[in-house]
Computed example of a mutant assay.
Amino acid sequence: MLAALVTVGALVFGMGGPAGELQRGLDGVVGIGAVAEVRSGGEVWRGSSGVAELGSSRKVPVNGRFRAGSISKTFVATVVLQLVGEGRLRLDDSVERWLPGVVPNGANITVRQLLNHTSGLFDYKNTLSMPPNPEFYTYQYRTWTAAEQIQRALAHPPVFDKPGTQFSYSNTNYLLAGEIIQNVTGRTYGEEIERRLIRPLGLGGTTMPGTSTYLRGPHLHGYVPKDGGLIDFTEMNPSLFGASGELISTTRDLNRFFAALLGGRLLPAPLLHEMKQPGVEGGTYGLGLSWHRTACGVEVYGNDGDALAYQAYSYATEDTRRQVTIAVTPNFRTNPDESVEAFVDQAICD
């Protein structure tokens, strides 16, 4: 259990003991800055390490916002499953049914296969330039449409021929899922996420920014490599990611969302069960939800996200009694994954 807690304003902090150990663990996470929230039963610890902005000594705010990348996929998948629960579409509907003429072989690809990455569709992200290619830096303020990104992907052949037989992670799948949400509801996926998830759950630090380039409120600055150094990429047009990764959030909000999801507040039990089924035998990715086993053998569910200048990770035990969310601004010298995994193990197992 975490140590006793004291409330300061709207925040809750652990005092001494295991809470001090969590801070030391967070200090060991590799990056420019990091922020985390750990929940154990009714107890909450929030902490940060590093700096919020290079060239300053300003601490990372414990309520700071960050780009959550592919954790967006869990939000999108939850909306799709809610629509399934309402009888407005089926997981085994074809892509052709909802997006006629858009995807070659769309009659043989299902909504389920989009969500669990077994469609075989080429990942549009692999058509984009990445640092240090000079073209990448032109993306910072450019607006992209889902149709444009989808067409870039479909210009390439599928990575395997028979949908549903293999797992191949593709951001294209979620661009298509976002378009299906709009065709079913008449509202954009961002509007549906706001209406169905963000407002009802009181996720005050969470937004679907669309084409807005800003991170409003307290936040971490994020960076990407250029010319042997780093440049500030905090402001950027998130339409580059669209439904596959545009979410902005906080550690508190992501813990609250996954507690509601895994606690059965957002989906009927049969659909939550579907969400936890791997797309291929032995896999660790279901319908917008992933899982892995910690060092102590406890399985945790959630997702992680890479938004270029930010990396985020959010996991909970199946009963939601233990949760951890952490966001890191990488330094691009050392991958933070290993140190984050150690912190997740510490938060879940100790």
Score class of each variant (00 low, 15 high):
Pro131Ala: 01
Gln151Met: 07
Trp45Ile: 12
Ser212His: 12
Gly164Met: 08
Pro270Asp: 13
Ser57Lys: 10
Ile326Phe: 13
Ala147Cys: 00
Val324Arg: 06
Glu179Pro: 00
His117Asp: 10
Arg24Glu: 14
Leu267Met: 13
Leu128Phe: 15
Phe75Leu: 14
Ser239Tyr: 08
Tyr315Met: 03
Ala243Trp: 05
Trp291Phe: 15
His273Trp: 10
Val80Glu: 02
Leu271Arg: 05
Ile32Met: 01
Leu308Ile: 14
Lys125Met: 11
Leu11Gln: 14
Ile150Met: 00
Gly286Tyr: 10
Asp161Ile: 01
Ala68Arg: 08
Arg39Met: 08
Gln149Val: 01
Leu81His: 06
Gly20Lys: 10
Val29Ile: 15
Arg256Gln: 13
Thr138Tyr: 00
Ser129Gly: 01
Glu281His: 13
Gly64Tyr: 11
Tyr315Asn: 04
Ala155Cys: 02
Thr320Asn: 03
Pro268Ile: 05
Leu272Asp: 13
Leu254Phe: 09
Thr118Val: 07
Gly202Thr: 06
Tyr141Val: 00
Asp27Met: 00
Thr213Lys: 11
Arg321Val: 09
Gly55Asp: 07
Cys296Gln: 12
Ile32Ala: 06
Asn116Tyr: 02
Val280Leu: 07
Asp232Glu: 06
Ile198His: 06
Asn255Gln: 07
Ala68His: 05
Arg195Glu: 14
Ala269Ile: 04
Asp227Arg: 13
Thr165His: 10
Gln113His: 03
Tyr169Arg: 07
Tyr301His: 13
Phe343Arg: 07
Thr294Tyr: 05
Val79Glu: 09
Arg67Pro: 07
Val340Gly: 03
Phe136Pro: 12
Asp253Ala: 07
Glu274Lys: 10
Thr211Val: 14
Gly14Phe: 00
Gly288Tyr: 10
Ala146Ser: 12
Phe66Tyr: 15
Gly202Asp: 11
Glu191Asp: 15
Glu338His: 08
Ile71Gly: 10
Gly64Ala: 06
Val30Ser: 15
Gly302Phe: 12
Gly217Tyr: 11
Thr172Glu: 01
Ala316Ile: 00
Cys296Tyr: 11
Pro218Lys: 10
Asp319Thr: 08
Pro132Asp: 09
Arg65Thr: 07
Asp92Arg: 10
Gly164Ala: 02
Asp350His: 13
